[in-house]
Design a protein around this nucleic acid. Structure first.
Length: 308
DNA sequence: GTCCAGGATTCAG
DNA sequence: CTGAATCATGGA
């Protein structure tokens, strides 16, 4: 296999600098499953049909793309929130009054929610249930390699729903999807006949978006929250996974709370960018860098939200 | 061997 | 409505 032909490295100027540790967490911290650390220390991945590499250099973030691809820098700038829409949202989080958030945010200063397209987020998180991040990345890479369009070298775009829907059972099984193969197949069959699903979903208010997502096979409350956050840019969405459950229990004293109650707490406590706060806490908890609050939050579990 | 992983679905009560 | 069992798979 020929390797891809790269452009030279160029600076990618951001509103706020990204330390190397933050970049690593951002590219391989459970948001996207499409980036891998190359031997030279750069992060190489595919988003949409764009192949790109980024690295943290002495002068700040640098990027390179495929020769002849003219859209790469603009696409990367959008993907990485280079113009800083999230910088002010992060600043407005209650980190001044919340020691836990302040510590987690300081540990990953500059961390942003990747602005993935809905297709990338949905495929990734359909594969995510009961799996570790490394293994999700392997599954998604196998899907792309076997069913996705080749982009040169060993790089592939994610497969279309049509490609997934008509894939041989043996091909899906060879991607180590386990029971998630049925999730992918079922969602593919529903979205195959609805090619503009992403545009249609993007028109919805977040509660309606979450409901639409949850109508897809394999999409429950947590996966829907992740797709809304990472794929539709709904920064107020607050996914509650096992790490967030543990983080909120340990650091905020919210032991025994159920995921739906913790989601309510997160949205109320962190506000319009709760999803960004969630990502700081998730990263800190997963890497053993979460502190305990000096004073635990004194609140009782809310009554379970009336489902509508 | 046991336990767990960025859970969802199905079933019993 | 809630809680438990079940679902493949791989790594620690």
């Amino acid at each position: 296999m020929a390797s891809a032909e790269w452009t030279s490295w160029r600076p990618l100027r951001l509103v706020e600098d990204v330390p190397a540790a933050t970049l690593a967490e951002q590219m391989d911290g459970g948001q996207s499953f499409r980036w891998a650390l190359a031997a030279d220390g750069s992060w190489v991945g595919v988003f949409g049909r764009t192949l790109a590499a980024v690295r943290s250099g002495p002068q700040g973030l640098e990027w390179r793309g495929q020769k002849g691809a003219t859209h790469t820098e603009a696409a990367l700038r959008g993907y990485l929130d280079a113009d800083g829409a999230q910088a002010s949202l992060s600043e407005a989080l209650p980190w001044r009054s919340d020691d836990v958030l302040r510590s987690a945010r300081a540990a990953y200063l500059g961390l942003r929610i990747l602005r993935q397209d809905p297709h990338e987020a949905l495929i990734g998180f359909l594969c995510s249930s009961n799996k570790r991040i490394l293994q999700i990345r392997v599954m998604v890479a196998a899907l792309a390699a076997k069913l996705g369009e080749s982009l040169g070298g060993d790089f592939h775009a994610l497969p279309s729903w049509e490609a997934i829907a008509r894939a041989e059972e043996s091909v899906l099984r060879s991607c180590s999807l386990g029971y998630r193969a049925a999730y992918l197949r079922g969602t593919a069959k529903k979205l195959l006949v609805r090619p503009r699903w992403a545009e249609e979903f993007a028109e919805l208010e977040t509660p309606a978006l979450l409901a639409e997502l949850q109508s897809l096979p394999g999409v429950g409350p947590k996966v829907a929250a992740c797709v809304a956050l990472f794929g539709f840019g709904r920064l107020e969405s607050f996914p509650v996974d096992t790490w967030v459950v543990q983080a909120l229990a340990d650091a905020y004293g919210l032991r025994g709370w159920k995921p739906a109650q913790l989601e309510q707490f997160g949205k109320a406590h962190f506000g319009e960018a709760a999803g960004l706060a969630q990502q700081y806490l998730f990263s800190a908890a997963r890497n053993g860098r979460l502190i305990r609050a000096a004073v635990s939050v004194k609140v009782k579990p809310p009554r379970p939200r009336p489902r509508k």
